[in-house]
Design a protein around this nucleic acid. Structure first.
Lengths: 127, 127
DNA sequence: TGGCGTTGTATACGCTAAAATATAACGGCC
DNA sequence: GGCCGTTATATTTTAGCGTATACAACGCCA
C-alpha cells in the first residue's frame, strides 16, 4: 500500500530516486496517508468506510485524523453520531483547501526531484 | 537521531515541511542513514567504530552496507580482517563519488522544498 | 420502541522489526 | 603461540506499534 513514497516500482534494474513529504506542527502529521484518507472521507461520507477502503482499522484512521487536528489546531472533519446511516463525516473547508494545496505541492516537488536526480546522478556508477 | 528527515525541530508552533530522500535499486537502499555511516567509515577507518559513533550495532551497520552493495551491484567498502588494529574498512572510489553526489542532490532538493512550501502554503489555514 | 450503523474510546493481543548475544575466522604484535 | 580487536554471520530476545476486540452513546427509521 502507498504510504507516501514516490517513484512507483517500475524498472527495478536501474537506480531510482524516491521521496516522502509531509507537514508537521506540534506533533501533528499530515502526509500521503492522511491525504488519501481524507480524500476517501470526502468521497464516502464516513470515516469507517474510508478506513476499510484503505485496509486500515477505524481506530488507526480516527487516530491519524485526531492527531493532525490536535497538532495543527484546525478541525479537519465534521462528524455526527447516529441518525441516517448511523452517522457520518465530511471535510471542513480548511481540509478541502489543504488537500488542494498539498497535491499541488507534492507534484511540484516530485517533478523537481526527478529532474534534479537525473542531472546529478548521470553516469553513476562509472564504468 | 537524524534518520534522513529534514527541517530540524525549531519553531514547533508553526507549520513546517519535512522530507526524506533516498535511492533504490533491487531492494538496495541508500539514504541519509547510510550517508552518515559511510562518512564515518571514511573518517574512522572501521565499520564497528562508525556504528558505535552513531549509536547503532555493528550488525545493523553491516547489514545496511551489504544490502546496498547487493542491490546496487557496486562495492562500497574495502574491508580486511585481522592484522593491525584487528582489521578495518575504507571506502571504494564509487562510494566516495556517491557521497559527494548525494550531498549535492540533497541540498538542491531541500532548498527547493522549503521555497516551494512557503509559496504554496502561504496563508493556510485561513484566519 | 427496538434495531442498526456510526462515532468515540479503552484495553488486550500478536506480530514484526530492532537489538542484544554468541561464535568463528583472521592476522599483526608482544 | 597466545592475545586483541576487527570482520562476518547466526540465533535468540525484547520492545514497540498496529490491530483486533469490546463497549457505550447517539439518533433516524421501520
Amino acid at each position: 500500500m502507498d504510504d507516501g513514497k514516490t517513484g512507483g516500482d517500475s524498472k527495478p534494474n536501474l537506480v531510482q530516486v524516491k521521496h516522502k513529504l509531509w507537514l508537521e506542527k506540534n506533533g501533528g502529521i499530515f502526509g500521503e496517508g492522511l491525504f488519501q484518507l481524507l480524500s476517501n472521507v470526502a468521497g464516502l461520507g464516513s470515516i469507517s468506510h474510508a478506513a476499510r477502503e484503505m485496509g486500515m482499522s477505524y481506530r488507526a484512521a480516527w487516530g491519524k485524523i485526531k492527531m493532525a487536528e490536535d497538532g495543527f489546531g484546525v478541525p479537519l472533519v465534521i462528524t455526527h453520531v447516529g441518525g441516517e446511516m448511523g452517522g457520518g463525516a465530511r471535510l471542513t473547508p480548511a481540509a478541502d483547501e489543504l488537500l488542494i494545496k498539498y497535491r499541488r505541492f507534492q507534484e511540484l516537488v516530485d517533478t523537481f526531484v526527478q529532474n534534479s536526480f537525473q542531472e546529478t546522478f548521470r553516469g553513476w556508477p562509472g564504468p
